[in-house]
Amino acid sequence: MTHATEAAPPVKKGVIHDIGYARYAGERRAPSTLWRVIMRHQIAHAWKTWWRWKPAIIGAVITTVVCGVIMYVSSASRISGLTRAGGPLAFIDGTLAYSFGFYNKFAFLMTMTVGAAVVARDQETGAFAFYFSRPVRPRDYVIGKVAGMVVVMGTILLAGPLLLAAFRIGMAGDTKTMIDLLPWLGRALTVGVLASLAYATLPLALSALVGKRTISLAVWAAYYVMGTSLLSVVGMLTWKPLAAIDPANAVVSLAFGLWDIDMPGRDKNALVGVAPAAISLAAQSILAVGLLYNRVSRQAAGAVGASS
């Protein structure tokens, strides 16, 4: 038995689907807002996969919860090895400043999974040619990348400490104590913002300088681990504020200094004062942004369409 097959529609031969010139119908943005697109892309890129932002976020959340529990459970217990104004220091007052040492570790993790590879990846993949063939200026790229990384770092170095500061204020027994503790929010904000800036900009600058992902990650890790330790040693031998070039040391020193906490004993030499720590973090961030802008501008000059 045979079935009649349906006739297939005739195929048009030699038809060219030329849509010709089509006017761009999408949203038109002012050049001054382009950095926001780059920032959003940077944040979205960091959020992708389980190996970039999420491990650091999980670590920071665990640190915040553990520190909060310690503040609540052991509020009256004394921290051995730490003093405040020469007297004993209770966990409730010392945990927040001490926690920056842990947040630093997760911030470093973020620099390794995202920060130190960002610009080098764009250089390796030739993304600059596409960025700068559009009306994106080097400053838009730099502001966008830096802002994106500061937001990402802020979730680690700022959000947790602010929550702990708020928790400490909430644990105050009376209104007067609560008001007295309000400066804690400002201190946490100061340390968190400066730390976020430094941890966001330094790896970005290094990434732009090196231009190859693998090497950039290794150089940043070597600088963070060995370079800063050496600077601390040189600082100890010659001029102590030199040790503030180490971002981790500067962040902890700033936190300890702002909360007037002292560490009598073996690690005391490593800590620097509030002013050198704050100046170091701010100056390194500014220098890093300058270096990043310089490198990106050079790339832009050599990108597609740069000569027109």
Binding site: T49, W51, A116, A221
Partner: peptide, 16 residues
């Protein structure tokens, strides 16, 4: 185990 994040993963494991 994680080829895309090999260098970062190895440094972080060995260091942290």
């Amino acid at each position: 185990v994680m080829p895309r994040f090999a260098v970062a993963g190895a440094v972080c494991w060995l260091l942290l």
